[in-house]
Write a protein that binds this DNA or RNA. Structure first.
Lengths: 154, 154
DNA sequence: GCAAAGCTAGATTTTAGAATATAGATTTAT
DNA sequence: ATAAATCTATATTCTAAAATCTAGCTTTGC
């Protein structure tokens, strides 16, 4: 690997590099809190072979957004999850009519699509943490204009 | 007024008829809680000449929705307010480019449009409690599909 | 006329949920 | 090899926001 490759790897913000203890320090919360956010469906860290969590720079930014929603805007975790559930995943993913008819994420708005168990063909083979629906839904940025842009492009 | 007129008035769900004490009983909360929801921007009851609150059947249903969000889905008031702020009011009201450029509700997603003070010409003369943006945004029903329908029609 | 209900404003209490701690096992890194 | 960090799962603590209460005044309705 040459110098350019190394630079690329270092600048890849989606590369999972931080152990949970480091991530907790960076975000300013306890490791337990990070696990709680994961249980609630707000964040999906990568895992090592032995199931240890690894967070990317993007994950850190996502977590900082979650903190903004909690500390500055007074949301609780259920509210953040509810906001994240507003994303029109079927439009973003280009689901067919058949996909929509059979997909729980299309029907329900009680949880974000990445928490829905029965996925349709458009999603079942994709890792949710790499999906644009998950990646782009960071509620501390202007969610309303995010939704607007996505509906406009359809 | 004839019998038909009387029937019409009785069946008008937007007619403000319940004093705050009655409304609180119907919803199952204290009068103080209803005043709190109003302060938070979740409900806009009509007022009598002497500033007493009057709630319609629609208001009762709206309040029941708020209770569902709190009790069943675990939202707090900030979260409900945040969800209500997602409505694309400028599309629903058909705001011009100029309206959008000057309207705080278009720019911000921190509060629902009916809480924004500086209103654009499309709204400044309308009573918010009679506006479709306010009326149709009841977060306990499927907010996601509500947003979808509104974007689709634009 | 007066009791009941409503008004605003502010203080107080309660409680759910956010955060922390504990325990026992496993993995990592020096 | 072993100390530090992480894992899951459960129990406990703490706090902020939801709800209630108080006070003084006004309106309503019998």
């Amino acid at each position: 690997m040459n110098v350019i490759d190394i630079k690329k790897r270092l600048s890849d913000k989606t590369r999972p590099v931080f152990a949970i203890g480091v991530a907790a320090d960076l975000v300013g919360v306890s490791v337990h809190t990070l696990r709680m956010y994961e249980t609630e469906g707000l964040i999906i860290p990568q895992r090592t072979k032995s199931k240890r969590r690894l967070y990317s720079q993007k994950d850190i930014e996502r977590l900082q957004c979650i903190r903004v929603m909690i500390e500055d805007r007074g949301f609780n975790l259920a509210g953040i999850k509810g906001m994240m559930s507003m994303a029109p995943c079927w439009e973003i993913k280009g689901c067919s009519e058949e996909d929509r008819a059979t997909c729980d994420a299309y029907k329900s708005s009680l949880e974000p699509c990445w928490m829905v168990k029965s996925k349709t063909s458009a999603c079942q083979d994709e890792t949710c943490s790499e999906c644009p629906v998950y990646r782009d839904v960071t509620t501390c940025h202007n969610m309303k204009s995010y939704l607007q842009e996505h509906w406009k492009n359809t």
